[in-house]
Structures are given as C-alpha cells and as structure tokens.
C-alpha cells in the first residue's frame, strides 16, 4: 500500500483518506436527514409502508389545535431548563469541591463520574427500584421520617413524575459539567489567587473575580452542549415514565417515537422530528445572538 500511495501527491491523498468517512456519514446521516424531511410530506402507514403525499398537511396538523407539538414543546422546555439548571449548579459546586485538597481525591473524582458513564438503562432501573411504590427506598425513607403519610406513586402521578425525571436527569448528567469545569479549574494559575489575596479579596470575591471569569468560557460551551443533548434526550425519559402519566412527561423525541412506532404514522413522526430540529436550530441561533451581543 505504501509505494502506491507514495506516488500520489498531497492533493489526492487527503481527500482519499476522508472519503470513507464522507461515504459512511453520507449514508447514515445525510441521506436519513434528507429522507426524513422528504418523508414529512407524506402520510405513511408503518406496517404496510403505504404512503400518500400530503404536502405540508402533517405540519398543519401537528401545529394545529389537535396537534401535540406545542404542549410537547412546553414539556421539553421545562424538562431541559430545569434539569440543565440543576446540572450546572451541582456540577460547578462539585467541581469546586473536587478541586480542593481532599482525602482520597482521585477516588472521589472517579466515583463522581459513574452516573454519567453507566448505561441509561441501568440508571433508570435503579431509580425505578428506588421509586417503587411499596418497597422503594424513596417512599420508605420519606414515610419513616414523616414527610409523607402514604406511599407516593412517583412516576405515575403529576407533578412528581416530571420532578422525578428532572432529578434523575440531573443526577445522570451533572458529571459532564464536573469534568469540563474541573479540567479548566486545574489550569487557573495559583498566582491569580495569590494576587487577589494580596489585594485583600475574600473567599467570595476570589470566586467571583478570579474563578468565575476563568471558567466562564467553558461554562458557555457546556451549557450549549448540555442544552442540546437534554432537549433531544430520549432514553432517560422514555425508560423512566414512557411519557406518562398520559402525556405529562412526553417530550418531543418521545412523540416522534410514539408517532412512528406506536401510532404507526411515519410521515407524521418525521414531521415532528423536523419541527423539533428547526426549533433546536432556532434556539441555537438565539444563543449565538445572545453570546455575540454580550461580547
């Protein structure tokens, strides 16, 4: 292989090396993406795959009075905003704590990562066991200390179902914030803190004037990434509540799945998926504008 490649200049070797990637991504991403957009203009019956062109009919229906787009968007935004806020607060606090000189610090850092890397299936099974109405630890503990009198159906009633999803989401994903922020914290030179100390800054103002500006940029990226990922999260919500009770925790990705494989309306599902993508793009552009406006 080497002698053959030797005769090719840079000009053809570079494109040649990226070609397999382009081919694969074209097949598994670009083609499905455009196919999804095209599919959204049809009414498709999943089992028979028989289809009929409806133009923008699917969109009209999902955005209309009987459509579920707007309520689902509301649920998605509540879930995203709440779980993201928790992830950031817990994540930053934990990162600051783990940046200190602690007993068995590296073990502590390892353990904190576990929820993030463990499969969502495992995480959900554990939490569903904790939330079990009769024998779950959550109810038993809360009853013992007298917060609740009777067992609570955590995942089957509102608002506890949405609250549970948000809390489990925060638990599962906050380590991402910890790793990113901790990595940045470790690069802040100690001399900055020494200088602040000489200038008479207390603990709080050292955090506000030294730490916060230093981790600001990383936090911006982390917020963006986590917002995107939380918005499109399927596994955790689907496995925890399946969207219930009724549609109370049914976020947009769950609607797409339900339309396609539960209600057998593939075209409608594609329309929901495309609408969701456009919404994400809109929020992304808003974010860019906000960031640019500030700097």
């Amino acid at each position: 292989m080497r002698p053959a490649l030797h005769h090719l200049g840079d000009r053809s070797l570079g494109p040649l090396l990226i070609a397999p990637v382009v081919l694969v991504l074209g097949t598994v991403i670009a083609y499905p993406l455009f196919a999804a957009i095209a599919l959204s203009a049809f009414a498709v019956d999943t089992p028979t795959l028989r289809s009929r062109f409806v133009g923008l009919g699917n969109y009209a229906e999902l955005l209309g009075a009987d459509g579920r787009f707007w309520p689902a968007l509301g649920v998605t935004l509540v879930w995203t905003a709440a779980t993201l806020a928790l992830q950031i607060v817990i994540g930053v606090a934990m990162a600051l704590l783990l940046n200190r000189d602690l007993w068995l610090r590296s073990l502590a850092r390892s353990l904190v990562l576990f929820p993030y890397f463990v499969s969502t299936v495992v995480a959900v099974l554990v939490w569903r066991w904790l939330f079990n109405d009769m024998f779950g630890l959550a109810n038993q503990l809360l009853m013992k200390i007298g917060v609740i009198a009777a067992p609570l159906d955590w995942l089957g009633t509102m608002p506890s179902a949405l609250l549970s999803v948000i809390v489990v989401g925060a638990w599962k994903f906050f380590p991402f914030v910890v790793i990113a922020v901790l990595a940045r914290l470790q690069t802040i030179p100690e001399s900055l803190y020494d200088a602040a100390r000489l200038d008479g800054a207390g603990a709080w103002s050292r955090f506000r004037d030294v730490t916060l500006p230093q981790i600001g940029e990383v936090l911006g990226i982390v917020v963006l990434l986590r917002a995107i990922w939380d918005f499109k999260e399927f596994d955790l919500v689907y496995l925890l509540t399946g969207g219930g009770p009724v549609d109370a925790t049914r976020t947009l990705p769950l609607i797409v799945y339900q339309e396609a494989f539960g209600l057998n309306r593939m075209g409608m599902a594609a329309a929901y998926a495309v609408a969701m993508m456009i919404t994400m793009l809109g929020f992304f552009l808003l974010y860019r504008l906000a960031v640019r406006g500030r700097t």
């Binding site: 797409v256 799945y257 994400m280």
Partner: peptide, 15 residues
C-alpha cells in the same frame, strides 16, 4: 454530532 437521533431513526429503519 449535534443532530438528534430521533430524526435519523425513521429513515434508517426504512433503509
């Protein structure tokens, strides 16, 4: 890297 999987899943399934 940012694309939601649920968008791709239907055409991929059909494919």
């Amino acid at each position: 890297y940012m694309l939601p999987s649920v968008v791709l899943i239907i055409p991929l399934y059909l494919l």
